[in-house]
Amino acid sequence: MLKKILFTIFSFLSVLAFSQVLGSKLDKKTLALGEVGIYKVNISNLQGKDVQSSPKNELLPFHFETVKDSISKQMDMYERTVEFQIFEEGKFTIPALDFKIGDQLYHTIPYEVEVINTAQKGDQINDIMKNKEVKLDVKDYWELYKWYILGILTLLALIFIIWNIVKYAKRRKSSPVMMTNQTLKDLEKLRKKKFIENGDFRMFYVELIDISRNFITKQYKIPADVLLTDDLIDVMKLNNTISPQNEKIVEEVFVRGDLVKFAKTFPDQQTMSKDFEDIKNFVKRSSKDLEAEQLRTGV
Rank of each mutant, 00 (worst) to 15 (best):
M1H: 11
L2S: 14
L2V: 10
I5P: 00
I9N: 00
S11F: 11
S11E: 04
L13C: 10
L13E: 00
S14I: 10
F18W: 11
S19L: 04
Q20V: 12
V21R: 10
G23R: 12
S24T: 15
L26G: 01
D27I: 06
L31G: 04
L31V: 06
G34Q: 07
E35N: 07
I38R: 08
S54R: 08
K56P: 01
P61D: 06
E65R: 07
T66Y: 07
S70H: 11
I71W: 00
Q74P: 00
D76W: 04
D76C: 04
T81Q: 10
E83I: 07
E88Q: 15
K91V: 14
T93Q: 11
G102C: 02
L105E: 13
N117K: 12
T118F: 02
K121A: 14
I125P: 01
M129D: 05
M129L: 11
K132P: 00
E133I: 11
D140A: 14
D140L: 09
Y145N: 09
K146P: 05
W147Y: 13
Y148Q: 14
I149L: 14
I149R: 03
L150I: 15
I165C: 05
V166I: 12
K167G: 09
R171G: 13
R172G: 01
V177A: 05
M178I: 02
M179G: 09
T180G: 09
T183D: 04
L184C: 06
L187H: 05
K189Y: 03
K189W: 00
K189M: 04
L190W: 07
L190Q: 03
K193L: 10
F195G: 02
F195R: 09
D200A: 12
D200F: 02
R202Q: 07
V206E: 09
E207C: 01
I209T: 15
S212E: 03
N214Y: 06
N214W: 00
F215G: 02
Y220I: 12
K221R: 11
I222F: 07
I222M: 12
T229A: 08
T229E: 10
L238P: 00
T241Y: 02
I242L: 05
S243P: 03
S243A: 11
I249V: 15
V250T: 06
E252A: 15
F254N: 02
V255C: 02
G257Y: 03
D258H: 09
L259C: 08
A263P: 01
K264M: 13
F266M: 13
P267V: 09
D268M: 09
T271I: 10
M272C: 09
F276Y: 15
D278G: 04
F282S: 11
K288C: 00
E293Y: 08
Q294F: 11
Q294R: 14
